[in-house]
């Protein structure tokens, strides 16, 4: 039921976002606000040590894959230890954590969309009439700054007919679309929802009233 609520709210925000005029002050602020509350909670939980352990584990896994499990660990182990330290230095632990149990859902969504995207672009390329009607859209991003926004921008570029061009200071995402007849705002909203779920974020404003 909670999930349904979230969906409903996201759809509502999506409708709001399609008319930039409506999207100012209070109405636009509440979804972001409840995300912030979740964020602060996450900061306390994820310390540097656990981030280091996680990245070290990941890199060891990558080494195991790369070395074909022959196990040249005398080289791989120090390298992973060093690389994990460098990665912490370059990208300090974020406030956001992927929810692994959400990964299969997200992968399913992503694979299906990639298939549609490739098919869509192939169809347009091969059609003699070259059916393109490009346009630039400006869409406000509801997801918090940091990893979720980066995921959004990368994933959007691989979805049917959309390409991230720029994110400006007011957190409005400039999207280049192949065809103005596609409902791009709706698919961007759907992607935001999927990423929010992946990071365990609550974009819902269902209980927003209690916070304020």
């Amino acid at each position: 039921m909670l999930r349904q609520n979230r969906l409903k709210i996201m759809v509502q925000t999506g409708i709001l976002c399609r008319q930039p005029a409506v999207l100012d002050n209070a109405q636009a602020d509440w979804p972001r606000w409840s995300v912030m509350a979740e964020q602060r909670h996450a900061v306390d939980r994820l310390s540097w040590i656990s981030a280091y352990a996680l990245r070290l584990g990941l890199l060891l896994g990558v080494w195991w894959i790369l070395s074909g499990s022959t196990g040249d660990w005398w080289f791989g182990l120090p390298l992973a230890v060093f690389a994990a330290a460098v990665s912490l230095w370059l990208t300090p632990p974020g406030r956001f954590r992927l929810r692994l149990h959400r990964m299969p859902f997200f992968a399913g969504f992503f694979l299906w969309q990639s298939l549609l995207a490739g098919w869509d672009v192939a169809r347009r390329t091969l059609s003699p009439a070259l059916p393109l009607r490009p346009e630039i859209l400006h869409l406000p991003v509801v997801l918090p700054e940091g990893a979720p926004t980066w995921w959004l921008m990368l994933v959007i570029s691989l979805l049917p007919g959309t390409l991230s061009v720029r994110l400006d200071e007011e957190r409005s995402l400039e999207v280049h679309c192949l065809d103005s007849r596609l409902d791009v705002p709706a698919s961007v909203r759907e992607t935001e929802l999927q990423i929010a779920l992946l990071f365990g974020l609550r974009i819902s404003g269902a209980d927003g009233g209690q916070h304020s």
């Binding site: 990639s114 298939l115 672009v121 390329t125 390409l163 280049h176 192949l178």
Partner: peptide, 19 residues
């Protein structure tokens, strides 16, 4: 075939990703 840099990026990223 595509007319400008933006549309070409579309073609390249999406078709190659699927390929």
């Amino acid at each position: 075939r595509f007319p400008d840099v933006y549309t070409r990026v579309h073609a390249l990223t999406k078709a190659d990703n699927l390929g």
